[in-house]
Amino acid sequence: MPITVTLDVMLARRKMRSKELASAIGITEANLSLLKSGKVKGVRFDTLEAICRELECQPGDLLAYHPSNGAPS
Rank of each mutant, 00 (worst) to 15 (best):
M1D: 08
M1R: 14
P2M: 07
I3M: 13
T4R: 03
T4V: 06
V5W: 01
V5Q: 01
V5A: 00
T6Y: 00
T6F: 00
T6H: 04
L7P: 02
L7W: 00
D8Y: 05
V9G: 01
M10D: 02
M10V: 11
R13C: 09
R13W: 07
R13M: 12
R14C: 06
K15A: 14
K15S: 14
M16C: 05
M16T: 10
R17S: 14
R17E: 14
S18W: 00
S18A: 11
K19L: 06
A22K: 05
A24G: 04
I25W: 03
I27T: 13
I27M: 13
T28Y: 10
A30V: 15
N31T: 14
L32C: 11
S33K: 14
S33T: 14
L34M: 15
S37D: 10
S37Q: 12
G38H: 06
K41T: 13
G42S: 15
G42M: 12
G42E: 14
G42H: 13
F45A: 15
D46P: 00
T47F: 00
T47I: 09
L48E: 05
E49W: 09
I51N: 01
I51M: 11
I51Q: 00
C52Y: 05
C52A: 09
C52M: 07
R53D: 13
R53A: 15
E54P: 01
L55V: 09
E56M: 06
E56W: 01
C57W: 02
G60D: 12
G60M: 11
G60F: 06
G60W: 07
D61E: 10
D61Y: 02
L62M: 07
L62E: 01
L63K: 04
A64Q: 15
H66L: 12
H66F: 06
H66S: 12
P67Q: 10
S68R: 10
S68F: 04
N69F: 14
N69K: 14
N69P: 10
S73G: 04
S73Q: 08
